[in-house]
Write a protein that binds this DNA or RNA. Structure first.
Lengths: 342, 342
DNA sequence: GTGAAAGCGCTAACAG
DNA sequence: CTGTTAGCGCTTTCAC
């Protein structure tokens, strides 16, 4: 436990060899004599030597660290429960590969451009997993198309970009169809922000399901909100005030569905008798609310895993099988739709 | 956009000065002539120069990165919703200080010792925030008392260690007292793992409240579980099978309380009429379950902020005012205790 | 006010 | 087989 940290020089001195030999010995290079290797290992152990990763990184030009980048205000993303699952999936894979994970939020809107640039070029990380963002975000564009190893969590219009996508369209279609099959015809869609691709796709899935079931699309039934619980709450209030009739709700995510559920209860609208509700995400909360929320399940942890695996493959030059991966979603029928009562 | 990344040398060449001058100029050192500074800045901008942080770190012997270390299986911690709030608080502060955040999980039990050592000595981070862990964990001990800048999230027996603590004892006392004041006398405590200090303290608070209200402590009413939703569920099942009577439950955390709530409903035990339930944490879920969960609020985001602030103070040699910080908790009365019906 | 050069800790090419 | 050494990119003395 000396004062400064112990370096390879210290080990070399104690073992009575050169630093180069220490480096080779500790790396298990076959050229090093068995005896010397033991000697070096002994010295390293005695001194409690841990290689300085910064020196190593500078030399190797890689850090064995990747960043999970969260665009825009961190607050927004952190409020989403599925973020944890994503993180869990990512860390699992990184552990296997002995990689480190850095969480990067981008400070303020204004500084975003600079912030992204820094992440890309300061060499602190070897690659990034990029959480999905507004399609208007020019910085995302630059990041994704910079050539820097990036895996984007969402759909991207360019074939060469590595992505892990959910089937937003298909999930929305299934959710809406489920409501239609239950006999619902006036189905509200509480959409997420429509500058987000996932929101657009979910809206499209909703529309297509209506079309296929010969139900006229009514724009007044679609209401754009911001993915928060309050948003679901507000959506109901607004619909009621506008005296818009509806017998079903397909919410763009579970939080909004849960907000809606609560407000409906407050207004004495019975779910699922009067209104059937379906969400999207299948967060933990969905199974504890009452009535329990019927929703579209997304395997977020698996998505995290896949993204990390894909990035690892690139960084280790293994080549990725599919640039695009689409993970399936499926309907989880609980109580809020009324299907179980039939 | 040359092939390799642009270094300080490139900038120096273009600006027609030495690398030292570039470094000074970009740092805004007053010794550099205004004109030269402009020249350098211009060159840097033109080349899109971003300093290599690894080189900088090696030289400065600091990385401006801290680690948030999560002991044991990551899965366990990731399943706790408050983790996000903690993370949010930490990142907020780090952003202000331009520090990076690394999430470090410790792989397997077996490897823990080595893993901790690496974190401490590989120089990839300047300091760590350490999530609370089992009191039996010897590695935590070593980390905390290694002299490396550490802020521990929880109580520590040694005065010199920096901590941010919740008032587990006080919160538990308040929760239990609330149940007592509602006339409950057979109060079950579903405790968290008792090798965790917070679980011990909550149990102590529970006991003391009983004592102060002259209610005999009955060990058969205390049941040790693992903080998960299933655990709450199981606890109820076991109590019922053992035919133990109770009219109140103080759960060691919200997840267990929510699990218990669900199982009680299944068994047609009415909450709060037959049994009053109080949780601990005040996670988001607590306000969406039905009945809504009365619980002890903990400001996790604030705790994250404080921990990060404290670590920043140490790393920037500002000296910390209080080595120990204890943040208050308070009771949030909702529906599961029955107080609102009076 | 600026340049030259040392050196942070490490690895790998080159010599021997 | 092992030692010597250059150099990753940066900052900061030390000269001039």
């Amino acid at each position: 436990m000396g004062k400064g940290s112990v370096t390879i020089k210290d080990v070399a001195k104690v073992a009575g060899v050169s630093t180069g030999t220490v480096s080779y010995a500790l790396a298990g290079d076959s050229r090093i004599n068995e005896k010397t290797r033991k000697l070096v290992e002994e010295a390293a152990r005695k001194l409690n030597y841990v290689p300085n990763e910064v020196g190593r990184s500078l030399r190797a030009k890689k850090t064995e660290t990747i960043a999970f980048v969260i665009p825009n205000t961190s607050h927004h993303v952190f409020s989403h429960p599925y973020f944890l699952q994503l993180l869990e999936g990512i860390t699992e894979v990184l552990e296997d590969h002995n990689y480190n994970l850095q969480i990067s939020t981008t400070p303020s809107e204004k500084e975003e451009s600079k912030a992204y640039d820094k992440i890309l070029r300061n060499r602190r990380v070897d690659g990034i997993i990029l959480s999905s963002a507004s399609i208007k975000d020019r910085n995302i564009l630059r990041m994704v198309e910079s050539g820097f190893p990036v895996v984007y969590l969402g759909k991207w219009h360019h074939e060469e970009v590595l992505t892990v996508e959910r089937d937003d369209y298909g999930g929305a279609y299934e959710a809406t169809e489920h409501l239609l099959q239950l006999g619902r015809r006036r189905i509200v869609h509480i959409a997420g922000p429509l500058d987000h691709q996932e929101s657009i796709d979910r809206l499209e899935g909703y529309k297509q399901a209506l079309l296929d079931h010969k139900v006229l699309y009514d724009a007044s039934l679609v209401i754009e909100k911001d993915f928060s619980r309050n948003a679901g709450h507000d959506a109901i209030t607004e619909l009621m005030q506008a005296k818009i009739e509806f017998d079903g709700i397909f919410a763009g995510n579970d939080l909004m569905a849960i907000g809606a559920l609560k407000q409906l209860k407050l207004l004495n609208v019975h779910v699922p008798r009067d209104v059937s509700v379906v969400g999207f995400d299948d967060i933990d909360m969905a199974s504890v609310v009452s009535p329990e929320l019927t929703t579209i399940h997304q395997p977020m942890r698996e998505i995290g895993r896949m993204a990390a695996e894909k990035l690892m493959a690139v960084l280790q030059n293994q080549g990725v099988a599919d640039k695009r991966s689409v993970v399936g979603t499926h309907l989880v029928v609980r109580e809020s739709c009324g299907a179980k009562e039939r």
